[in-house]
Measured scan of single mutants.
Amino acid sequence: MAAGGDHGSPDSYRSPLASRYASPEMCFVFSDRYKFRTWRQLWLWLAEAEQTLGLPITDEQIQEMKSNLENIDFKMAAEEEKRLRHDVMAHVHTFGHCCPKAAGIIHLGATSCYVGDNTDLIILRNALDLLLPKLARVISRLADFAKERASLPTLGFTHFQPAQLTTVGKRCCLWIQDLCMDLQNLKRVRDDLRFRGVKGTTGTQASFLQLFEGDDHKVEQLDKMVTEKAGFKRAFIITGQTYTRKVDIEVLSVLASLGASVHKICTDIRLLANLKEMEEPFEKQQIGSSAMPYKRNPMRSERCCSLARHLMTLVMDPLQTASVQWFERTLDDSANRRICLAEAFLTADTILNTLQNISEGLVVYPKVIERRIRQELPFMATENIIMAMVKAGGSRQDCHEKIRVLSQQAASVVKQEGGDNDLIERIQVDAYFSPIHSQLDHLLDPSSFTGRASQQVQRFLEEEVYPLLKPYESVMKVKAELCL
């Protein structure tokens, strides 16, 4: 049975990233139509530049190519590739079939990587351009969430054990800070992308030097003109047959890092959902379990974690691919890159769409948070109580021993009897502590235990987050809708 299948058929496997999760716009960027249309555009740009620099290419040939950029006979191309065992030459023939007058000058002087690699770089750039505003929107939604809850005390956790208090907004800023680093890295790697350009079979530009009869300047002009037509500021000066596969490492490393950030955020949300302090959106008709109707599973956060793990592992592909590119190139890269580049971007696209949807509907339960604080705060307040007693004339050592005994009794009630923490009640009825009984409410005010959390939130948002989001103001209103 021949390899390949009808990918629109229910009898043929289709990647869930495309069929179930990723956005239509990201799927289109990695589609065959987008790819092969870009090949034709690159052939047109090459012909236009070659004509401008004096090669015998007519206006009629150029116009014929322009008129057929979208006229792609995919069936013919597939048949040609089956016959020739070469995808680029299959599309040269297919393009030439609908451009008979231009057929002889299509791909003039070029090698397969002229269309293959340059198209990949265009796709990487455009895919990054799709991700950047999506990530900015996630940051914006979380920034709104953090600002609104900047002063809401909550129990902090280290080692997932109760620690000092923080605020809900401050905790959210930990998430935002990681995503801001990801946004900066995505922008950097996007701006650092260079075009492969017009380089020939081993990167020496020998074929173009021959076409222009040894004119170095025209060869350099050709490279520059096509690079500018493709919208790049610069091209690699040095290439082998391909652009260095280190570029793929750079791009997928940034995406993998984004995956790590999203995994951490969504894990926190899942843990908070278990504590009943916070939940992701839950639709009115949504079913959490087929057997347990009360369940409210954090399905979206779980999906993000599941896909983020996949995204983090994909960076190993370009690392290994770059390491086995012998001399000017081997074909070890080809099949692998067809999979890992598309999957990385479709996965990143999915987790950003999902995280935006989550961040637009996060639900906080202040009463649950308050109750958990009441359970733990008495123990945390013991040092403040000791200091207040010393100020009232008591002995630190005597007070410490009193607190120690009462704390152990209260802990026994919590752990052995399943009761509430009654340390404060014990202190309130103990005559030894009568000098500070009137101060206990103040000493137990949760806001006095959150330090500068709310001020940190305000400063972080104003100095770091809002300036970073400013270039994306025009796209901030787009909502994230999930079908599944």
Rank of each mutant, 00 (worst) to 15 (best):
K224W: 10
T354M: 15
V457R: 04
G109V: 00
R270T: 01
A3S: 12
G418S: 04
R20P: 00
E64P: 00
K170S: 02
D87F: 00
D248F: 01
Q286N: 02
D11N: 14
R372S: 06
I237K: 10
L461P: 05
G197S: 12
S359L: 07
L423W: 04
R141N: 11
T242M: 05
A127F: 05
V368H: 04
Q205I: 05
I351W: 02
P133T: 14
S434M: 12
T111C: 01
T321M: 10
L130G: 08
S253H: 12
P446D: 02
L69H: 09
T201D: 02
H442E: 14
E425S: 12
T350H: 12
N118G: 09
L423A: 05
Q285P: 11
T202I: 08
L131P: 04
R83G: 15
I122Y: 13
P24M: 13
I72P: 07
P153Q: 01
K199V: 04
I427F: 12
V390K: 02
H7Q: 15
P56R: 12
E481S: 15
D182H: 00
A388K: 05
V254A: 11
A392I: 08
I238Q: 06
T158M: 01
M181W: 09
Q210C: 06
D317H: 04
E60N: 12
A103F: 09
G419W: 08
S140C: 15
L128F: 08
Y365M: 10
L346P: 06
P281K: 05
P281M: 12
K134A: 11
I358S: 12
C98W: 09
F74T: 15
Y294H: 01
N297D: 02
R149M: 14
Q428I: 10
C173F: 02
V390P: 05
G361Y: 08
E473D: 15
G418F: 03
T313S: 13
P467M: 10
G393F: 07
D59R: 10
M89K: 01
P435C: 08
S289K: 02
I72G: 05
L121V: 15
I436T: 06
L193M: 15
E464V: 07
V465Q: 06
V405E: 12
Q241D: 00
E60C: 12
T313V: 10
R137H: 10
N353G: 13
G451S: 03
L121F: 03
I238T: 07
D191M: 11
R372E: 05
D215F: 13
I249P: 03
L84T: 05
T330D: 03
T167F: 02
V315Y: 10
E462M: 14
D216M: 09
A453W: 03
E401R: 12
D349P: 02
E50F: 07
S359D: 14
S323K: 03
E277D: 04
A47K: 03
T313E: 03
E417Y: 11
L314G: 09
K367L: 04
L222Q: 02
V226Q: 02
Y432E: 10
T267Q: 14
S67V: 14
S412I: 14
F212T: 07
T94F: 07
S253L: 11
D6A: 13
G214V: 06
R303Y: 02
S448V: 14
A453G: 12
W39I: 08
G419A: 10
S395V: 03
R188I: 06
E283V: 08
S334A: 06
E370P: 06
P378C: 06
S23K: 13
H217Y: 15
E383I: 04
M389Q: 10
F145D: 15
V251Q: 08
T38G: 04
S301F: 02
I385T: 06
T450R: 05
G54K: 10
T321Y: 09
V429G: 15
R404V: 08
F95L: 08
K229H: 06
S112R: 00
A335E: 01
